[in-house]
Simulated assay, not measured.
Amino acid sequence: MINTSISGTAFTAVSTDVVNRTNKEMSEEEIFSSGVSNSSNDLQTQKVKETSNISYETQHKLSNSSLVVFNDPTNGKYAIVSLQNSTIDMLKNHFGEDDFYKRDDGITRLDNKAEAYVAGWFGDIAYKREFLSADSNKDGLLSDSEYGSTKNSFSHHGNVLGFGDSLEINTWVGDTYESSSASSNNYINQMKNKTNITIDKQLDITINNDDDFNSEISFEEALTTHYNKNTEDSIIQLAKDMVGLPKELEDAMMMEKLKKLSEHNDDKIRAMVKLLLEKGDISMLDTTDKELLSNELSEANEDGSDIQKIMNKKLDELLKIEKYKEYE
């Protein structure tokens, strides 16, 4: 039997007041540009910056995204970011359409609880995780060295205890808001794909990782995203990566997992599990099972020596939790 536990909070959104505006109030808002690009007049550029009411304006929109604007919780100015359209739809489903006002310029103005939620996470990323100050050349993209100056990591601790045929794995958050340049294996970095890093990208990822909309990223939410697996499998994978597990113990854990999956409601998954429980013996499959696994079986060597490896890989693909999104 395997018992796992995970606890702690990795990141917390900035506390933000909820302001409920009328459509008339939002329609009359004026947003002034934050700068004059390619201007040869330094005095003119400085004047525009001084009169700007924008604290952050994206220079690199995410793919399949739209612009949204809200008040920066730290200074009351406007922040204009891009969020993927699927993320905006998810926010609308949770907070309601009334918290989203479409301006004449095409930008969606966030209001009420939706604004407070998104602005809180923006404040966390821009200021507590120091994404804004790390962008030393102010081009909107963080280079490797600039990203290394952010605080987008946290540490974790844990233990693995064996009791006869039982295994207990406990893990918990250590220090939070750690340097993104930390390389020790007991640190988890929030940015898996370290290219084209922007505040928008991390904000979109964070909103999608906050499954319960409680303005906190728990260790569980961060870990399942990191490994792209369910909670138990993520904890087990972390234990393997940190201390390793004896092969006989891994085999016993796999057998327990397969026995649970043998009652899965997907016929193909049950057929794969059946074959794995039979150690790859194809003769134990009935005609229906063989038809369900025809593509996978066709990939196997003639002697079937690699069938278990193929089935394990395909099973992982079918059970994969699609949480982490890649961004261009």
Rank of each mutant, 00 (worst) to 15 (best):
S66N: 12
S55W: 00
V19C: 04
D99H: 06
N71K: 15
F11L: 11
I54S: 02
K49E: 14
S37P: 07
E57P: 01
F70M: 14
H60G: 08
N93F: 00
S37K: 13
L91F: 05
S63F: 07
N71M: 05
G35K: 11
T74S: 12
E29A: 11
S55L: 04
N85W: 00
S86K: 09
D98G: 08
N85G: 01
V68E: 08
E50P: 07
R21L: 06
I88P: 02
L43V: 13
H94F: 13
F70A: 10
V19W: 03
L67C: 05
K102I: 05
Y56W: 07
S40H: 14
D99V: 05
E28Q: 13
D98K: 15
S52C: 08
P73A: 11
D89R: 06
K77N: 08
Y56N: 04
G35Y: 13
N41R: 05
T87P: 00
T87V: 03
F11C: 03
V48P: 01
K24Y: 07
L83Q: 02
K61H: 09
E28W: 08
A79G: 06
V19L: 10
T9L: 10
I80P: 00
A13I: 00
L43P: 01
K77E: 04
I54F: 04
S55T: 12
S63G: 08
H94D: 09
H60M: 09
D72S: 09
V81W: 04
F32Q: 13
K61F: 05
S40V: 11
A79R: 03
N23Y: 03
A79W: 02
T9W: 03
G76V: 08
N93H: 04
Q84E: 11
V14H: 07
S39I: 10
T58S: 14
E30N: 09
E25V: 04
K77A: 03
F32C: 06
P73M: 11
N75K: 05
R21S: 10
Q84M: 03
M26I: 13
E29M: 13
V18K: 10
T87S: 07
G96D: 04
E50Q: 15
K49G: 12
N53K: 08
K92L: 02
V19G: 01
V19D: 01
S66L: 05
T12V: 13
F100M: 08
F11R: 00
D89L: 06
N53D: 12
R21E: 04
V36I: 15
S33M: 05
D42C: 02
E30M: 10
S63Y: 07
Q59P: 01
V68F: 08
L43T: 11
